[in-house]
Design a protein around this nucleic acid. Structure first.
Length: 198
DNA sequence: CCATTAAAGTTGC
DNA sequence: GCAACTTTAATGG
């Protein structure tokens, strides 16, 4: 049986609800639980000395959170914050280890899922080596859209503020706003009621 | 419903 | 990138 089925049918996992802005865990905290997103969106971020946010990743339904820290027993290098009302499956380290060790399929599934996380992180990191703001923003939009069902042009309403896009792209707010407007002029995206559609 | 205030977005420098 | 400004959303009567 695959990992996900075992997880969902396990009586050792607890459903927890989080409101937008609630923390699942905080930077430097000890890794205690395994988290799985049943519904909602969670971002992994840090803040620099000036309080400016830096988003490391955005995770959606079906994603694992914090597996590498749990396996290694290391403190969290990021905060995990719910971006909207979210339902998260939580499981203690011991129960999680039992589940992973219970059969090969589970371990393999977990490996796939970890790979997904790692790959996504590489994409986001590579993006920050792009020179132009335009390229950075477009790549962020592509990445966000690739996780959506509806691939039609302009069908995807970006569920983030300019501030958040800036934190994802590693750009300042003003540059992001100017870039987004330029992309609108170039007909690469459209803006309706301040919301970006791509 | 309107008034007040906070947050997001915009623009010139 | 700061600061001043405009617009929109949220809150409370």
């Amino acid at each position: 049986m695959p990992f996900k089925s075992r997880l969902l049918s396990s009586d050792t996992a607890v459903q927890t609800k989080y409101k937008a802005g609630d923390y699942l865990f905080q930077e430097n905290g000890n890794s205690q639980f395994y988290y799985y997103i049943l519904a909602g969106t969670v971002k992994l971020n840090n803040y620099d000395e000036d309080g400016k946010e830096f988003i490391q990743d955005i995770l959606y339904e079906g994603a694992n959170i914090g597996v590498s820290m749990l396996l290694l027993g290391r403190p969290y290098p990021v905060n995990a914050v719910a971006m909207e009302h979210s339902i998260i499956l939580k499981m203690s380290r011991d129960h999680f280890m039992d589940l992973v060790n219970s059969n090969l399929d589970s371990a393999y599934d977990l490996c796939l899922s970890l790979s997904e996380n790692t790959y996504n992180k590489f994409l986001l990191l590579r993006n920050r080596s792009n020179k132009s703001a335009t390229k950075r923003i477009i790549e962020i939009l592509d990445l966000l859209k690739s996780q959506q069902k509806d691939q039609a042009r302009f069908a995807f309403e970006i569920p983030h503020t300019r501030q958040q896009l800036a934190a994802l792209a590693g750009l300042c707010l003003e540059t992001t706003i100017r870039t987004v407007k330029k992309l609108e002029r170039d007909k690469i995206l459209i803006i309706k009621n301040r919301k970006v559609f791509y």
